[in-house]
């Protein structure tokens, strides 16, 4: 295994593009080291991104949006009051990844690039409409987060491409987001089902909504038909039930050691109802 401490994203991309064996990028390392230790993946080239300028930064953009560096650990997101005020759902998703110790290392970008359909950090980003800034041999491009996962353990990034930052849009007035997952214990588990909802209200009425689900399909995905049910409603009981049904209908989970298909399908709907209420309350100004 060759270890490279890249100083720029271009250098990292160039090393990755030239490498002919297994390549891994090292940010938080909480997935890479587990795979290394288990003998599942021993990279030929390990490219450490933490020495690149700006990767530890959380930056407010001119348009009111946010840029989050690829090496920002979960604990630092949670400690950032202004970011938490704007995007509590994004932050609470990331904060559910692993233990306090893992929060000291794990990053949003790593959670995304690990490609797990159960990644807790990702549905919130998808619901928020976040984009990833990608550096590659052909320069820089931006794509929506939901276009990155390609299936369990896979991404759509090409050889030599890597994420340089994640961008969240400006929150704007009347917005609220939330994420919940279901696990059998209270902590330390991989999501059995997860749901993030981001919405905007005018008065009591929902005017915009995005619904993302995790751990119930090969990739984390948006459920536009569920979001449409919310728009124009005041999240009355009938809407909430319809939302739960639509989300459950959109789920296409497997049965594995963490849960049955039937259970996941049902519970992701339950989560959607609960998450919608939290996001709605937040949008209306209750920040709890």
């Amino acid at each position: 295994m060759r270890y490279h401490a890249a100083k720029t994203f271009e250098e990292a991309a160039s090393i990755a593009a030239k490498a002919d064996g297994v390549t891994r990028f090292l940010a938080g390392g909480t997935d890479v080291l587990v795979q290394l230790r288990a003998g599942l993946v021993t990279p030929d080239d390990l490219i450490d991104l933490k020495h690149i300028d700006g990767v530890q930064d959380i930056t407010r953009l001119d348009d009111g949006g946010w840029e989050i560096g690829v090496a920002v650990a979960g604990a630092r997101l949670g400690a950032h009051e202004a970011l938490c005020a704007d995007w509590p759902g994004v932050v609470e998703g990331m904060e559910l990844v692993g233990s306090t110790q893992v929060q000291g290392r794990a990053t949003l970008t790593g959670n995304l690039c690990n490609g797990s359909p159960a990644a807790d950090g990702v549905p919130g980003l998808v619901a928020a409409g976040a984009v990833a800034k990608i550096v590659g041999p052909d320069g820089m491009r931006e794509i929506p987060i939901e276009e990155i996962p390609a299936g369990p353990g896979k991404t759509t990034l090409a050889k030599g491409e890597l994420i340089a930052a994640v961008r969240l849009p400006a929150r704007g007035a009347g917005g609220g987001d939330a994420y919940q997952r279901f696990i059998p214990r209270t902590e330390m588990d991989i999501a059995v089902a997860g749901c993030a909802i981001n919405l905007r209200v005018e008065g009591d009425t929902i005017t915009e909504a995005r619904v993302a689900i995790g751990a119930v399909a090969p990739t984390i995905r948006l459920v536009p038909e569920a979001a449409e049910l919310l728009v124009g409603s005041t999240l009355d009981a009938a809407t909430a039930d319809a939302l739960a049904a639509a989300v459950s209908a959109a789920a296409n989970p497997i049965t594995d050691k963490r849960g049955t298909s039937e259970f996941r399908t049902e519970v992701v709907g339950v989560l959607a109802r609960r998450v919608a209420q939290t996001a709605y309350d937040r949008a209306k100004g209750d920040r709890s």
Binding site: R185, E187, D189, K257
Partner: peptide, 29 residues
């Protein structure tokens, strides 16, 4: 009672051979 147990695949291999999936109670449980 609640969450521990050996889970085997059809191939007879143990599927939960790490603490992530062999779920002993944690402090918050």
């Amino acid at each position: 009672a609640l969450n521990e147990g050996y889970v085997y695949g059809e191939d007879g291999r143990l599927q939960n051979s790490v603490f992530l999936d062999y779920r002993v109670p944690v402090a918050s449980d």
